[in-house]
């Protein structure tokens, strides 16, 4: 029983980051209407930024968070301006090919620059654990979970209270009408894409401490985020958090209870994706 509860606890802690990354993906998909295969690469850049700042400046990853948010926002905005905007009206196949090409380019550029090694950011508090009765909580996963929740709450407030947030939701619901009301869709897209990248960048900093920074770390998260978004329903931001919880719990259960489950954890997201798609195809038919 204690093992089960500890497993579920681990799952819940992981779900925060999953929700953060997947929300970014859902934003670029729901608002801009772009299938961004390079979403995880923004996360990878955040992780490497955190590593570089820690290794060469000794900067605490907590401080890198803000910097990574800004840097990823700028990179995301530039990506939108330079690459996404020209293909907004192109065929969906071309859009997907473009972001896929960007993903391949960034991954392999990182591979050339940093090599395939994994690099961990190890601040003094990295291995600290809190004990909660019979259960153990890593300080870092717990902190990352709380931080993710806080960021998601702020995003919720931004989307429901601010003018820009309302404009974003308006554009995601209808492409034409907001233009008639004087909302510049182009600016909204820019902001949404930048914000999506920034969310991934922040998650990357957290992962550089919890997991590691490596050229391929982002790619796995792109896939997992797609699984979460497919489960939640395209562009459905509210469904992302429960969907992330489902994926994280399923992964935790597999890694604890399945013999030799350690390697198969990486296949769980596919099962979730597959079941979500079967459900969708079945409902549609």
């Amino acid at each position: 029983m204690e093992l089960l509860l500890q497993t579920l606890l681990n799952g819940i802690l992981m779900s925060g980051i999953y929700a953060l990354v997947a929300t970014g993906l859902a934003l670029s998909l729901g608002v801009v209407g772009i299938v961004n295969f390079a979403h995880g690469e923004f996360l990878m850049m955040g992780a490497f930024l955190s590593y570089l700042l820690f290794a060469f400046r000794g900067m605490d990853p907590l401080l890198s968070l803000g910097l990574a948010f800004l840097a990823a926002f700028v990179v995301g905005a530039l990506t939108y301006q330079g690459l996404i905007r020209p293909v907004l009206r192109a065929a969906e196949l071309n859009q997907m090919l473009l972001t896929f090409g960007l993903s391949i380019l960034l991954q392999n550029l990182a591979l050339l620059l940093f090599g395939a090694d994994t690099r961990v950011v190890a601040p003094p508090y990295q291995a600290t654990t809190l004990s909660l009765g019979p259960f153990f909580l890593g300080v870092v996963p717990f902190g990352a979970f709380l931080l993710s929740l806080a960021i998601l709450l702020m995003l919720q407030v931004f989307l429901t209270r601010s003018r820009f947030g309302l404009a974003m939701r308006a554009v995601s619901q209808n492409r034409l009408a907001p233009g008639l009301l004087g909302i510049e869709a182009d600016k909204v897209y820019l902001l949404a894409f930048g914000l999506a990248a920034a969310l991934a960048g922040v998650a990357g900093v957290m992962l550089s401490v919890m997991l590691y920074a490596s050229p391929t770390v982002g790619f796995v998260f792109t896939l997992k985020s797609f699984a979460i978004v497919a489960l939640a329903g395209l562009g459905n931001l509210k469904g992302v958090v429960p969907a992330a919880l489902v994926l994280a719990m399923a992964e935790a259960l597999v890694s604890t209870y399945l013999p030799g489950g350690g390697g198969l954890v990486e296949a769980v997201f596919f099962l979730v994706l597959f079941l979500a798609l079967v459900g969708r195809a079945w409902r549609k038919a």
Binding site: L98, I104, L105
Partner: peptide, 9 residues
């Protein structure tokens, strides 16, 4: 594969 990514874009 950097080259392939760049060509694709």
């Amino acid at each position: 594969l950097v080259v392939y990514g760049a060509i694709l874009i």
